[in-house]
Design a binder for these strands. Structure first.
Lengths: 208, 208
DNA sequence: CTGTCAATTGAACAAGCGTTCACCTAGGCT
DNA sequence: AGCCTAGGTGAACGCTTGTTCAATTGACAG
């Protein structure tokens, strides 16, 4: 067999990562073998080692790329405006970005324990940076007397868990479409930090 | 070697489940071998099969017992009172129960995909029953005009994700103790469903 | 038409897997 | 004193694992 036509490394490389992502998201890192990934790609197991030094690095790269893309995308947002506006922007972004990448999100939350300590530290650091962006918004809103947040750190964790949890049950053919879900979640986010002065009607009337 | 003193099945049985729970919570079901569990118990791998027919059933039993204990404990609550009171009771219960059983909770959320379809269906059914208890409270509150909840199903998922997320980052030696965390989370839960009429001060002033 | 080399095969390696089973042995019962 | 059996051993089964590597292929440059 060997090479067929054209340069394959540009083709096989991405296919390896795609197959790994799909299988690991479905069955878990430890349960997926290199031979399964290879079969999905249409190649022998040995060939995978042209694209990754080992299985661990394959996982780490999936998570690293995901987190780097997340940070790059969130960096493009303007979160410097009024806290309420920044919170809306962040929440909308989080929902869309995560629903678009359900597999990568799932892996990044479930397979942390399969990383070596160094790799884990790197991913955890990126995640903390991301969470800090949200906490900063909450702090600004609290300082301005706009948000009623007992503790910004806990509110950050609560909001992220609530928003990310979406990816675990969302189905394309579900009762509500993505726009509706986004609207409803945004209303809940607003309400969770609202100080009551804003009024309920305002928080629930989410413009699209 | 063989038996040492007294009847051991009453001792070894629980030790097997405890060791399995600890190791699976830490490394994941697929990554833990029967030999590792046996070593932790202080026994040879073959002896485990006196206490479980196979590895899959060992996992299922851990999850089943956890979910059954959850349902039994939640059934003992009185959730028939005013919606706000019932919600408080439920939230407090959820936090306490889950923080007390971090390992079992972690397993029940992470290892669902390692269950056979029949076993999965059973666990999923118990979970749905649990979630329905919360949704019923939200529906009652909404019908009574007390809660501002755009969609009770989504609010249920959001609240459960938010509350359960707690177990993923809570540490005994953290900045806040459990009572404080419970109080703050309860305030956030109230605020998320509050209709603004109740007033912010009331929602944040959580009695212990 | 030939030589080069990127891309891949397929076999091999030692290690570990879940599970089974013939055997053993210490303790309680008669 | 002697048997019975619960509770456990330790070796073995066939299979899979991650990883390596010499050999081979096909596409392309000169």
């Amino acid at each position: 067999m060997a090479r067929k036509t054209g340069s394959h490394s540009d083709i096989t490389g991405p296919k390896v990562r795609a197959a790994a992502q799909q299988l690991i998201a479905r069955d878990g890192f430890a349960a997926v073998s290199m031979r399964q990934i290879a079969r999905e790609v249409g190649v022998q197991a040995g060939a995978l080692y042209l694209y990754t030094p080992d299985k661990q690095t394959l996982l780490f790269d999936l998570m690293r790329v995901h987190m780097e893309e997340l940070m790059e995308a969130v960096s493009a947002l303007d979160l410097s405006g009024p806290p309420q506006e920044a919170l809306d922007t962040f929440a909308r972004f989080h929902i869309t970005f995560h629903l678009d990448r359900a597999e990568a999100v799932f892996i990044s939350y479930m397979e942390l324990r399969n990383l070596t300590p160094e790799n884990f530290a790197h991913i955890a650091d990126l995640r903390l940076q991301y969470e800090t962006l949200l906490e900063t918004i909450l702090k600004r809103g609290k300082a301005a007397g706009l948000f009623a947040v007992p503790d910004t750190k806990l509110a950050t964790m609560a909001l992220i868990a609530m928003l990310t949890g979406l990816t675990t049950w969302y189905r394309d053919d579900g009762r509500l479409d993505r726009a509706e879900i986004e609207r409803i979640y945004l209303a809940m986010v607003r309400q969770m930090v609202s100080d009551g002065q804003t009024g309920r009607a305002e928080a629930l009337a989410v413009p699209l």
